[in-house]
């Protein structure tokens, strides 16, 4: 029996959300003048920065591919981003694994064949971690890639879901994540309804899995709607501004 009441009798979670509710999202594009694309993304208390450089010259000789661009992803958590200070090992195992996972997600989505012999760098920095950092970074990276004008097949969105005390929950925060239940981060291409990334740990029965998966998909769709709406406004202003300058 868990000490913390994750779901109140009224069906509310520790932070007052309903099980299927995603946290409040806020983002800004084009913060950095020197990066080709950048985004600052907030989902509840999780705050991440993403910067995209490229397509540019491949840094590692011999790594370049003759028919497409190579994608280089680096995920890093600031030492002060978590409750307990993280040791500043830049290449710790968890960061490397997440970098690889995110890179593979974007390799399939970016139209890399348009830029052979080049490299596209995606750097993600977590400033504050409150659960769902992997997913927040994917969303931030998607926005930064859009800001950089790098062509993609679709707008990748990501959300995690889990199950605590038999109730499926979307977008777990740190407290819920540490409860020991299953954690399922998911990234989809919303317009094509295709899965890019799917991970799951801990145990689930098939029925529970279906439920949690459905929650994650719904969560992704919620996030996509929020990101899309603001993006259209922002682009409208930018495209209008460009027209008046010409």
């Amino acid at each position: 029996m868990s000490k913390i009441e994750f779901i109140s009798p009224e069906g509310l979670r520790v932070d007052g959300r309903r099980p299927q509710e995603v946290r409040k999202i806020n983002y800004r594009l084009n913060l950095f003048s020197r990066a080709d694309g950048s985004a600052y993304y907030e989902q509840g208390n999780t705050r991440v920065l993403a910067a995209v450089y490229g397509p540019r010259q491949v840094t590692r000789r011999g790594a370049s591919k003759h028919d497409r661009a190579i994608i280089n992803c680096e995920y890093s958590m600031a030492t002060f981003s978590t409750g307990e200070r993280r040791k500043s090992a830049k290449r710790d195992r968890r960061s490397t694994e997440i970098s690889v996972v995110i890179r593979q997600t974007f390799e399939s989505v970016i139209l890399t064949h348009l830029y052979p012999r080049t490299q596209i760098d995606i750097f993600m920095q977590v400033l504050q971690a409150d659960g769902g950092t992997r997913c927040a970074c994917i969303n931030a990276a998607s926005l930064a890639l859009i800001d950089a004008g790098i062509p993609m097949r679709d707008f990748v969105v990501s959300c995690a879901a889990g199950m605590i005390d038999g109730v499926a929950l979307t977008d777990l925060n740190y407290i819920e994540d540490s409860a020991g239940g299953p954690d399922l981060p998911l990234a989809i291409l919303p317009k094509q309804n295709k899965i890019c990334l799917l991970q799951m740990d801990s145990k689930l029965t098939i029925e529970q899995y279906e439920e949690v998966m459905q929650m994650a998909v719904e969560g992704c769709k919620q996030i996509h709607a929020v990101l899309d709406a603001k993006l259209k406004d922002v682009t409208d202003q930018l495209v209008n501004k460009r027209k008046t300058l010409l």
Binding site: I146, R153, F155, P190, D228, T235
Partner: peptide, 8 residues
């Protein structure tokens, strides 16, 4: 119309 990646 303003479109996002993946829109038909």
């Amino acid at each position: 119309d303003v479109v996002t990646p993946g829109t038909r």
